[in-house]
Amino acid sequence: MTSAFELILCLMILGTACVALFMRDFLAAVAFFVVFGNLMGLAWLTLGAVNVALAEIAIGAGVTGVLLVLSRSRLLALGEEISCGPAKPWLRLGAAAACSVFTAVLAAAVLSIAPDDGLAPVIDGLMPLIGVENPVTGVLLAFRAYDTLLESFVLLGALVAIWSLAAPAAWPRAPAALRMTDPAALNVAGSFGRLLLPVALVMAAYLVWVGSDDPGGAFQGGTVLAGGFLFAAMGGAIGLPRSDNSALRWSLVAGPLVFLAIGLAGAALGRFLAYPEGTAKALIVTIEYSLALSIGVTLALLVAGPPATTETGL
């Protein structure tokens, strides 16, 4: 029964991936990409990786889907033609060869990991020391906190890179509005966005809070927050902030800054990113909440794009 379900799921994942790649219609390809992301989330769920499933569905399918649809409408607004002609044979062969080699290396790497690599018991033994029960949170914020700290800076760097694409005349204005231009559509999207934003705030706070003991955490909560911001902006319920808005700047750097400050305080007491005994959970929750805020605002602004002079909506 289970293996039949897994087999069908694998076939559906491969099928939607193929359709998304070979579809000529851009919008239909994006629709299949979103379905593909959701099926991937389901696959992670059957593997018992609930944290990854949440992240895959929220970021891989949700935010990326919005980003792709938005790119299409912006390109159309510029008068660009979105179509791809037949590729050259050598290009196809080269891409096929490169992808095959990459897949083979990846498969070899994954298959070389023994099912029992001895890491899980080590982490299980260390978990009681930090007072959180979700081992993923333990790894991300205590045992391998370096990685997460650097990730939060990478996300900030991505936004800086996108902002650097702004035309000189556009800096430091707000990004082009996400508001829908059609009045009837704006009406519907506005009601939905106004309803969704407060719910998204509560949901994000909840996801970060349960992230200590159950699946959830800063990235999942932050993405829900970003979704709420984006829907509210599309419905015209909120406007997008100017890039030199100081409240915006602070919320962008809050997560990395708090993380770094706590890490440096640990360095002063002994070791960088080491939490004093008994305070680990409180510090981890503090870092996670500030990270979730920064991730939410950064993701929403990554989707919104660079500052623009035009006031065009969708």
Binding site: D182, A184, A185, V188, A189, S191, F192, L195, L196
Partner: peptide, 13 residues
């Protein structure tokens, strides 16, 4: 809610 909203949007378009 999401289904109703997207259906409204698509129908109006």
């Amino acid at each position: 809610l999401a289904a109703g909203t997207s259906a409204q949007l698509m129908a109006r378009m």
